[in-house]
């Protein structure tokens, strides 16, 4: 039977892709950020997941406003990292696992989550930057698991509620655990933490709110479902709504988790960056 080993969340700032391409890991600006990842590499090397479910939010590559799914799941043999328009290096395609994707889609729709299935889905920095952070050299890292992308809408309101995001993760967990083969799965939640790119409030960062979210997502994520969507915009910034991905990931991990490592650093680009690794306790 399939097992979920744990979940890893991280910011997915596009500038990270350039920093990796230019080997800036030890640069004084970047070092406090990249120092968060070696403990995650060690954990992945020990546990060697077979599949990575990457929960991210598309930023206008895979989807446009003509047709905007609230929740989309990739069901493709591979996922291409296409040109986003502003010159971050493109990576080679990531191998998928469409049979498992369809199993998840079947299970979740039966659980009354209305999923948009995607047999083609170009993936942007929200998907690939975390892959590069966790599996350096991705997709050519020899330990690179097969990938299933899950994208949630944070481009336009109405966005999902925090409660819906957490429950989505719980239904995803049920779906994965229902897969009959013995495979090991890791779930990613990418984006955040507090940041705002647009408007007179651009550059807004809120460490106090980020720490509140980091504190409670580990052992009491239900508490965070009291935060309204407008409150999330107000406190996390307009793009800090990406915290929804962390909630989706958290829901997939079950009630009992152990925190393995975390890192929090301000600023990277316009963003308060964070990463968190939670291991599932069976």
């Amino acid at each position: 039977m399939a097992r979920i080993l744990g979940g890893i969340s991280t910011s997915h700032i596009p500038a990270v892709g350039n920093a990796i391409a230019n080997n800036l890991q030890d640069d004084p600006y970047w070092k406090p950020f990249f120092d968060g990842y070696p403990p995650i590499h060690a954990w992945l090397a020990e546990h060697r997941p077979d599949v990575v479910i990457n929960i991210y939010n598309d930023h206008g590559l895979g989807f446009f406003l003509d047709q905007m799914p609230t929740f989309a799941i990739g069901a493709a043999h591979e996922y291409r990292n296409e040109d986003e328009g502003w010159g971050i290096p493109q990576l080679d395609p990531f191998p998928g696992f469409p049979e498992l994707s369809w199993h998840i889609i079947e299970s979740m729709v039966a659980d009354e989550f209305d999923i948009t299935s995607c047999q083609e889905l170009p993936v942007d920095h929200g998907f690939v930057v975390p892959m590069q952070l966790f599996w350096p050299g991705a997709p050519h890292n020899p330990d690179m698991p097969r990938a299933i992308p899950v994208s949630a809408n944070t481009v336009q309101h109405p966005i999902p509620t925090l409660r819906r995001a957490l429950n989505f993760g719980r239904a995803l967990r049920k779906a994965v655990l229902g897969w009959p083969e013995d495979i090991k799965v890791v779930v990613l939640g990418t984006g955040g933490l507090s940041h705002q790119l647009d408007g007179e409030r651009a550059g807004f960062i809120n460490p106090e709110f980020d720490r509140y979210c980091l504190e409670h997502i580990v052992h009491d994520p239900d508490r965070l479902t009291r935060i309204t969507r407008m409150e999330l915009v107000e406190k996390a910034g307009a793009q800090g709504t990406e915290f929804l991905m962390w909630m989706m990931m958290r829901g997939a991990l079950g009630d009992n988790v152990r925190e393995v490592t975390r890192n929090y650093h301000i600023p990277i680009s316009n963003t308060a960056s964070g990463t968190l690794l939670l291991e599932c306790i069976e």
């Binding site: 481009v155 336009q156 309101h157 109405p158 509620t161 925090l162 409660r163 705002q196 647009d198 408007g199 007179e200 409030r201 651009a202 807004f204 509140y212 479902t225 009291r226 935060i227 309204t228 969507r229 407008m230 409150e231 915009v233 107000e234 307009a238």
Partner: peptide, 23 residues
Amino acid sequence: MEHPVDGPRFDHRQHIPGTTIFD
């Protein structure tokens, strides 16, 4: 941080300074 669960009270027009809600 005690707030009612998100739901029918959702208000697009709530004003957050320097922020346009893209709805």
